[in-house]
Computed example of a mutant assay.
Amino acid sequence: METSSAIATFLSFGLPGIGCLAVVEKFVPLFPSYVLLMLLGLTVADGPALATTIMATTAGSVIGAIGWYGLGRALGSQRIEALVARYGRYVFLRPSLYGQLTNAYRGNHFWVTLVGQTLPTVRIYLALPAGVLGLKPVAFVAATSIGTVIWNMPFLSLGYALRGTSHDPVSVGFWVVVALVTMEAAIILGFRFYRRSIRPPCGT
């Protein structure tokens, strides 16, 4: 009930409130973001409001990611790792996950950031190691913005489309997440297989 009241309070401020709600979601992951996005979609009025809601939530999410990025850049590797080891479990960020996110940046920084914004949990905390590693801010913001739109738009649109129907938006959103993650995993595996297939044999 308290969470619902808080969401209602944010919504009462219109688009600025929706943007602030998206910022808060990046720092206080009380429930999956797809749930929030679909609930927001259910509240969107007819007309151009859906597009403006997508823009507001994208802006809020990007601001939240910049906050994590700035925190990582300001505190540095040692202090961030110490904080994650001590407090990370309280916000679903265990040291093993942080290590995996950091190691992911051994590849293309832009694409890692973009794809990371479309993966549950990863999309919240990937900006932290990005800041620690000092990724280029402009490229980071651009990739985060594109990935956030790719994540936000389907769930807001689904919530919008489900208005007045008997479908449960939470269960629908869950299966959409499963489909998105499965598709991304298939693309990544296919790309790795392709790279291995074109790699010249040793000794040639």
Score class of each variant (00 low, 15 high):
residue 79 R to S: 10
residue 6 A to C: 02
residue 135 L to Y: 01
residue 68 W to H: 07
residue 144 T to M: 14
residue 159 G to F: 06
residue 18 I to M: 11
residue 43 T to G: 12
residue 184 E to M: 13
residue 63 I to V: 14
residue 201 P to C: 00
residue 180 L to M: 14
residue 189 L to T: 14
residue 136 K to A: 13
residue 168 D to S: 13
residue 190 G to C: 10
residue 18 I to Q: 10
residue 147 G to L: 12
residue 126 L to Q: 13
residue 27 F to L: 14
residue 28 V to G: 01
residue 48 P to W: 13
residue 55 M to L: 15
residue 94 R to C: 11
residue 99 G to V: 06
residue 163 R to F: 11
residue 66 I to C: 15
residue 53 T to K: 03
residue 107 G to A: 08
residue 173 G to L: 09
residue 127 A to R: 03
residue 173 G to N: 10
residue 72 G to H: 05
residue 129 P to S: 03
residue 124 I to W: 13
residue 64 G to F: 02
residue 143 A to M: 02
residue 110 F to H: 03
residue 92 F to D: 04
residue 22 A to P: 04
residue 137 P to R: 01
residue 148 T to Y: 05
residue 133 L to W: 03
residue 85 A to M: 00
residue 45 A to W: 12
residue 44 V to C: 07
residue 39 L to N: 10
residue 82 A to P: 04
residue 27 F to C: 07
residue 197 S to E: 09
residue 44 V to K: 06
residue 116 G to C: 05
residue 25 E to L: 01
residue 200 P to N: 05
residue 104 A to F: 10
residue 27 F to T: 06
residue 36 L to P: 01
residue 195 R to V: 11
residue 94 R to D: 11
residue 54 I to A: 02
residue 97 L to D: 08
residue 204 T to R: 15
residue 39 L to R: 09
residue 115 V to S: 08
residue 42 L to R: 10
residue 75 L to A: 07
residue 157 S to V: 10
residue 63 I to E: 05
residue 77 S to Q: 11
residue 132 V to P: 00
residue 135 L to V: 06
residue 72 G to S: 06
residue 106 R to I: 06
residue 181 V to K: 01
residue 193 F to G: 13
residue 175 W to M: 10
residue 121 T to G: 12
residue 55 M to W: 13
residue 23 V to Q: 11
residue 183 M to P: 05
residue 126 L to A: 12
residue 108 N to T: 01
residue 144 T to S: 15
residue 100 Q to W: 12
residue 126 L to M: 15
residue 18 I to G: 06
residue 128 L to D: 07
residue 104 A to C: 11
residue 64 G to S: 04
